[in-house]
């Protein structure tokens, strides 16, 4: 297999907190974070990770490696037991200020079943007391962007699982976030839908200039989407290895069928196997 060594670029390990590549500002800076639960479970152990502007970073790992816990800490839903997290080089208080919006896409669509789609998508703006006349155009834009332009009057139960997930992405769009956190958003969907949504996410990431932290247990998804992958290990949860995926964007089916993609997947799988055993 000499072709392999010639065509595939070497995934480079990156020292956490190292020199700034391309001078990009850190969006999230996690240093020496521990999370210990009441029953002495060490969910996270000395985690260091710097996420820079424009990064699409996947947290890849087996269940129980603390990847969701880490994401929840970044979202401010949970507090680190020790260590430090910085958002845009400041405290959590900065989150929500103009240009410092953060959005979270959950594993399940997490829509309000009693509200029609437009009201569901409008929720983050409603909570900020944005006037309806101001928020409705944004809601329509967001729904159109995820291909649900004709469904603003529908109730969640009238939509398929994939459409519900799209709606929850539309809800994330309306606040015009710059940091997007996604917790295995497509884990419950069939592969076709999942691939389509992956392409949608990549498109939005580019168009909107997002920084994305994406939790997944799928090697294929992580390689396809990310420019960086943090492979996490369980018991205690920690970052075991970092891979850089240097394939250029936009990525499409060509990339999915390429040898380069296969090689990255092989490497990521190998890293995952090492930490799982």
């Amino acid at each position: 297999m000499d072709a392999e060594t010639q065509t595939s670029p070497e995934p480079t390990a990156q020292a956490p907190g190292g020199p700034v590549p391309g001078g990009k500002r850190p969006v999230v800076d996690i240093s020496q974070v521990d999370k210990v639960y009441g029953n002495e479970t060490r969910a996270l152990d000395q985690v260091d990770l710097t996420v820079r502007e424009g990064d699409f970073i996947s947290l890849l790992g087996p269940s129980g490696c603390g990847k969701s816990t880490l994401l929840r800490i970044v979202a401010g839903l949970s507090k680190a037991t020790s260590g430090e997290v910085k958002w845009w080089e400041q405290d959590y208080g900065v989150v929500g200020q103009p240009g410092r919006e953060l959005c979270f896409v959950f594993q399940s669509p997490t829509l309000m079943p009693w509200a029609r789609l437009d009201k569901n998508v409008r929720l983050p703006l409603d909570l900020k007391h944005v006037k309806k006349s101001e928020s409705m155009p944004k809601v329509r834009d967001a729904l159109t962007m995820v291909g649900l332009g004709d469904f603003e009057g529908a109730y969640p139960r009238e939509l398929s699982g994939g459409m519900q997930m799209r709606a929850s992405i539309a809800r994330a769009l309306v606040t015009e976030p710059s940091l997007c956190l996604m917790d295995e958003p497509f884990g419950a969907l069939d592969e076709m839908t999942r691939n389509r949504l992956n392409d949608d996410i990549l498109r939005l990431w580019k168009e909107r200039g997002w920084t994305v932290i994406f939790v997944t247990h799928s090697v294929y998804e992580a390689v396809y989407l990310s420019n960086r992958i943090a492979v996490m290990a369980p018991r205690p949860g920690r970052i075991a290895e970092e891979l850089t995926i240097e394939a250029p964007y936009p990525r499409g089916n060509e990339f999915r069928n390429s040898d380069e993609y296969a090689e990255y997947c092989r490497r990521a799988s190998h890293a995952l196997e090492k930490v799982s055993s």
Binding site: L77, L102, F106, T110, M112, L123, D126, K128, T175
Partner: peptide, 24 residues
């Protein structure tokens, strides 16, 4: 619980959580 997280992350007030989430 995820909807509750969503409301908290959007800094919903106690009143908003009550009227827009708990009561429905």
């Amino acid at each position: 619980p995820n909807l509750m997280n969503l409301f908290r992350m959007n800094r919903a007030s106690r009143w908003q959580i009550l009227t827009r989430l708990r009561i429905p």
